[in-house]
């Protein structure tokens, strides 16, 4: 079967009832969607199917034939972060990061649907309420989505230097973080 993922056509072997999550992670090595529960409860496996958020763990492969699938790996242009990604980074919307892919894709779909008018806290809570995060307490996530919906952008270089006023060198950031 053929699949369109992040703009590229992929040939996959899994059967029609295999979950899209399994196909992405195990066959295509696209690992940003996470297997948090594999029963539709957490939202960590969310991907965009033709621009709409969908839980890939409950999505049979056969139902997405010919659809455009987007994961975090396919957000924005190469080397550039989208407004949503920038905001999640700058406003501490990601802590352990395990829910982050699903959160960002749900936020991306919500903001895209509003054509840049900005979204309210209530809309965010309604649309993203089914996404579980155990780390942040949600406040930082909501603030990140609000910022992104207002089109706020952040100077990443500036952020990298944050907290080092006075000319001290960054130590942790310069190592590039984890593997």
């Amino acid at each position: 079967m053929r699949l369109m993922v992040n703009g590229a056509e992929q040939e996959v072997d899994s059967g029609p009832l295999a979950s899209l999550l399994h196909v992405l992670r195990e066959e295509l090595d696209i690992t940003s969607p996470k297997a948090g529960c594999q029963q539709g409860g957490c939202g960590a496996c969310t991907v965009l199917v033709d621009g709409k958020p969908q839980r890939s763990c409950l999505t049979p492969l056969a139902s997405v034939e010919g659809a455009m699938i987007t994961t975090v790996e396919g957000l924005g242009d190469a080397g550039e972060l989208t407004a949503v990604q920038q905001a999640f980074y700058a406003k501490y919307g990601a802590q352990c990061g395990y829910c982050t892919s699903g959160m960002m894709l749900a936020a991306t779909a919500l903001i895209d649907a509003t054509n840049g008018d900005g979204v309210t806290r209530q809309e965010i809570e309604e649309v993203m309420g089914g996404h579980l995060c155990r780390c942040t307490g949600y406040v930082k996530i909501i603030e990140a989505v609000e910022a992104a919906s207002r089109g706020e952008t952040f100077d990443l270089e500036e952020l990298r230097r944050a907290g080092t006023a006075g000319g001290e060198e960054t130590m942790i950031l310069d190592t590039g973080g984890q593997s």
């Binding site: 940003s32 975090v72 944050a162 973080g177």
Partner: peptide, 16 residues
């Protein structure tokens, strides 16, 4: 001081 998360860029690009 406020530091960005040391692993934040990896998280938001799905690369962690």
């Amino acid at each position: 001081a406020r530091f960005p998360r040391y692993d934040g860029l990896l998280h938001v690009t799905g690369r962690t």
